[in-house]
């Protein structure tokens, strides 16, 4: 039987990774320290597989086909964007568990879309490379993409339920897997909009407070129009955080870090969700 041993929420702002650590200012070093903290906690949890929930930014999937929620069950490579020191070749997948999550979900009311060959972007590729794969215990990273950046969007409650489907599948798996789930998304950010570069710390901390308290209800109550008004179109990515929460329902957690800076696009929130009630 598999087990969800922990969860994390973290941002995936590309700009953080274009500057080498050696040239980073103190604020950026603090952000990298938060990623390092997530990496180390994944190791301490002795995770064998990490599920990373990301958002397409209208690059991987075009207007011709926009999946509601998709799982990578085969070859995985990336991220397709070039970052200094970040590999772009194969990301080892746990194909057996990925296919099990897909099949278990389809039997239980979750009609996963599937990719047999997926080149991921920064939203999945950076957490995989930076936080998951440096741990020797981690044998595979399973990519999941939610419709959290491009309309039509998955409802936030459904994103949470998809997290529950991941949990149910893991617990029904034969293999003795220790699984960590990462919800990858910036909080407030206005991508490609006139307010790009702005932040809403109050909104960001409200979302992080929901994560830490294990309470998704305030997130469910937000309309997409309210999110865009308060946190930009990038704020719609809180679906990814809600999905990670759904994999650890009712579990509380702890804030790891929060930062925003004028040079950064998004409000950057890091938190751990504890598996123990």
């Amino acid at each position: 039987m598999g087990k969800i041993v922990g969860g994390f929420v973290l941002p995936h702002e590309p700009g953080l990774f274009f500057t080498p650590k050696e040239a980073a200012k103190p604020q950026l070093l603090e952000v990298h320290a938060a990623y390092d903290r997530v990496r180390d906690r994944i190791g301490e949890l002795q995770a064998t597989t990490v599920v990373v929930i990301g958002a397409d930014h209208y690059v991987l999937f075009g207007p011709q086909c926009l999946p509601n929620f998709l799982i990578g069950i085969g070859d995985v490579t990336g991220p397709y964007e070039k970052f200094p020191g970040v590999r772009q070749d194969e990301i080892p997948n746990n194909r057996e568990l990925a296919r099990h999550i897909l099949q278990h979900g389809r039997v239980h009311g979750f009609d996963w879309s599937a990719s047999k060959s997926l080149r991921v972007d920064h939203s999945v590729g950076l957490p995989a490379r930076i936080c998951a794969l440096p741990n020797s215990t981690v044998k595979g990273v399973i990519p999941v993409y939610l419709a959290s950046g491009v309309e039509p969007l998955i409802p936030i409650r459904r994103a949470y339920e998809v997290g529950g489907a991941i949990r149910a599948a893991v617990e029904a798996a034969d293999a003795d897997e220790r699984v960590v789930v990462i919800g990858s998304g910036g909080i407030s950010h206005w991508v490609g909009m006139p307010r790009m570069g702005d932040h809403n710390e109050g909104f960001d901390r409200m979302v992080l407070d929901c994560v830490v308290r294990g309470d998704p209800e305030p997130l469910f109550a937000l309309s997409d129009a309210e999110i865009i008004e308060q946190a930009g179109n990038g704020g719609l990515e809180i679906r990814n955080l809600a999905c990670a929460m759904g994999a650890l329902p009712g579990r509380s957690g702890a804030l790891i870090a929060y930062h925003n800076e004028p040079d950064w696009v998004a409000g950057l929130g890091f938190a751990e969700i504890h598996a123990a009630a």
């Binding site: 309309e151 991508v191 490609g192």
Partner: peptide, 13 residues
């Protein structure tokens, strides 16, 4: 284009 509801992700790219 944005005023006509085209995604800002696309206009930026």
């Amino acid at each position: 284009l944005q005023a006509r509801k085209v995604s800002p992700l696309l206009t930026m790219g």
